[in-house]
């Protein structure tokens, strides 16, 4: 039982972290908080990939000529790319948040929806006149 728990412990905790991140993205209305949740989700995925590549008793994949048991270097390469792409999406998302704040004066999604609804009602009223 303990063996099974230790064999899957990393994956389960990572899934828990991913779901906390997903919950923040879905349930919280603040746009900056949503992006922080997205970051939590992303970092958990990174840890998941690296956990999959870990070999018990292995070392970092650097050739020294002595120890020849390495952890899998391929996930490391993929995640190096993913980290940089993650920052690119964060930057773009935050730029959109700043823009939304300028256009609506708020970064809460229910308030934005309220303003949109009032705008639409105002348009209909104007057309009727």
């Amino acid at each position: 039982m303990l063996e099974l728990f230790l064999a899957k412990y990393n994956y389960w905790i990572v899934i828990l972290l991913m779901m906390i991140g997903l919950y923040v993205v879905v349930a919280r209305g603040n746009l900056v908080k949503k992006i922080i949740g997205l970051n939590v989700f992303q970092t958990s995925v990174f840890v998941m990939y690296i956990s999959l590549g870990k070999v018990a008793g292995g070392t970092a994949p650097v050739l020294t000529g002595k120890n020849e048991l390495f952890s899998n270097p391929l996930p490391h390469v993929l995640i190096l790319t993913a980290i940089v792409v993650g920052v690119a999406t964060t930057a773009l998302g935050l730029a959109i948040v700043v823009r939304v704040r300028e256009a609506y004066g708020t970064i809460e999604d229910d308030e934005i929806e309220e303003i949109e609804r009032q705008d639409m009602a105002g348009d209909l009223e104007g057309r009727r006149r």
Binding site: I36, T43, G53, K54, A60, L80, I83, G86, T90
Partner: peptide, 22 residues
């Protein structure tokens, strides 16, 4: 977990640049 290169990037880009942007 033996991913030293990734840790380096995460500390610099993930912890540094993202926090500054936020």
């Amino acid at each position: 977990l033996d991913a030293v290169d990734v840790a380096f990037t995460e500390a610099a880009v993930g912890a540094g640049v993202s926090t500054v942007l936020m």
